[in-house]
């Protein structure tokens, strides 16, 4: 087993939404480089617990990069320095002894802090409630092969559908815009023939909801795409804009 590394953490600690919060420093010693970032925090938390202190609160569940539950800003970058990687899939072999890691929660008006690194992302659910689905009741769907879908179209829809809803795009954007998240869902459903009948209504409703929830606007910074752990393309934002304008121009559902 290889020698562990020693690092210093500066972690945002905040007791609750009303608390001002601030950074606290912790030492993480002899950290195996095979550990994931979250396992490193586990080790720190175990120590804090044994010392009778309050462990660092952070969201996580699947620990394999798919549930979208984890996420923090590490040295200014959502989910840390590795491209296309969630925090839970980031491994300590990418850091060196002596490093200082500043760890903060997502910062956005629409994502208030609950505690430490845990934020409230229910805004994303609200946007989906507004129209991020195809309105089909259970039962009565035609045979799955009734409508062929070109492989390439299905693949592009899947590229967009890979979004895990973690919120890194919002955290990365200087305007705290949710357009990558919204664009990905609108694109997935607009690309598939099954989603076309509602495309106009969906685009209008989701975009309006996003605005109402105080997510910012897109000013083409492209930070979202760069930081997205699933590498969702900003081409989805362009498609969303097209769908939105088309809907505004031609649709009866204004």
């Amino acid at each position: 087993m290889n020698q562990g590394i020693d690092i210093t953490l500066k972690v945002w600690r905040q007791k609750g939404p009303g608390d001002k919060g601030g950074f606290e420093a912790y030492h993480a010693g002899n950290i195996s480089t095979d550990m994931s970032f979250l396992e490193m925090i586990d080790v720190v938390n175990e120590q804090l617990t044994r010392d009778g202190k309050d462990p660092i609160a952070f969201d996580h569940d699947c620990r394999e990069g798919i549930c979208g539950m984890c996420g923090a800003v590490v040295n200014g970058r959502p989910h840390g320095p590795e491209k296309g990687t969630t925090l839970c899939q980031l491994h300590m072999r990418h850091f060196s002894s002596g490093d200082t890691l500043v760890i903060e929660p997502w910062r956005a008006r629409a994502f208030p802090v609950i505690k430490d690194l845990v934020v409230d992302r229910s805004g994303f659910d609200q946007i989906i409630i507004a129209g991020g689905y195809i309105s089909v009741n259970t039962g009565g769907a035609p045979d799955a092969n009734a409508i062929p879908v070109a492989q390439e179209v299905a693949e592009r829809a899947m590229d967009a559908a890979a979004c895990i809803g973690c919120g890194a795009c919002v955290a990365a954007c200087p305007n705290a815009s949710a357009m990558l998240f919204v664009g990905a869902k609108i694109s997935q459903l607009a690309l598939l023939p099954h989603g076309r009948p509602e495309a106009a209504r969906r685009a209008l409703a989701m975009v309006r909801k996003m605005d109402a929830l105080c997510f910012g606007n897109c000013s083409n910074e492209r930070e979202c795409e760069a930081e997205c752990p699933k590498e969702i393309s900003i081409a989805n934002i362009a498609r969303m804009n097209r769908e939105f304008f088309k809907a505004g121009l031609f649709s009866a559902t204004r």
């Binding site: 039962g139 899947m158 099954h194």
Partner: peptide, 9 residues
């Protein structure tokens, strides 16, 4: 059938 109708890619 149901999942395809929901837009599962």
């Amino acid at each position: 059938d149901q999942c395809v109708a929901q837009g599962v890619p």
